[in-house]
């Protein structure tokens, strides 16, 4: 019979590898094309001035790549999981706002060409829930380890 702590470790492993792979893929789809394509998607949300759009378009994919690799490797798990949850919360909030306003724009999630729809919201919402669960699990496991010492 599997012990609860083993099951939790397995869930943690599954979540961090899955989310890590998604983040690495998301970064790769942006880094393999000119930064202007991602900038165009960011600009479509009509929230940031042009300079900020350029800065985000040039740096965010590298940040996504770093977070994705940390999750897969399992290094600094609590920080990586928290960063993932925060990032996804921001993405999800922006997408919900755009969808509610009826903006038919590219979500910018995995490169150009994906319009925000209930499907993209469902996908990103599920990812956010997974990231929150991973964050909670990573802190819970840390506390459990500390209490054993």
């Amino acid at each position: 019979m599997t012990s609860p702590s083993k099951a939790l470790r397995a869930v943690t492993l599954l979540l961090r590898v899955a989310l890590g792979a998604v983040f690495v893929y998301a970064a790769w789809t942006k880094l393999r094309t000119p930064w202007e394509l991602f900038a165009m998607s960011i600009d479509s949300y009509q929230l940031l001035p042009l300079k900020a759009v350029e800065l985000v378009a040039r740096t965010l994919p590298w940040f996504e790549l770093a977070v994705g690799l940390l999750l897969i490797a399992g290094f600094w798990l609590r920080s990586a999981a928290t960063a993932t949850a925060l990032l996804l919360a921001v993405f999800f909030g922006l997408m919900v706002r755009a969808y509610a306003k009826g903006m038919e724009i590219n979500c910018g999630c995995f490169g150009p060409g994906e319009i925000i729809s209930w499907k993209t919201l469902l996908r990103d919402g599920s990812m956010l829930a997974s990231a929150l669960a991973l964050t909670a699990l990573s802190f819970f496991q840390r506390r459990k380890t500390a209490s054993l010492i």
């Binding site: 094309t33 000119p34 202007e36 394509l37 900038a39 165009m40 998607s41 600009d43 479509s44 009509q46 042009l50 759009v53 350029e54 724009i105 590219n106 150009p112 060409g113």
Partner: peptide
């Protein structure tokens, strides 16, 4: 590269 969205001229 397919480009859509606001098609901001500066970025284009």
């Amino acid at each position: 590269y397919p480009v859509s969205g606001t098609l901001n001229y500066e970025i284009l």
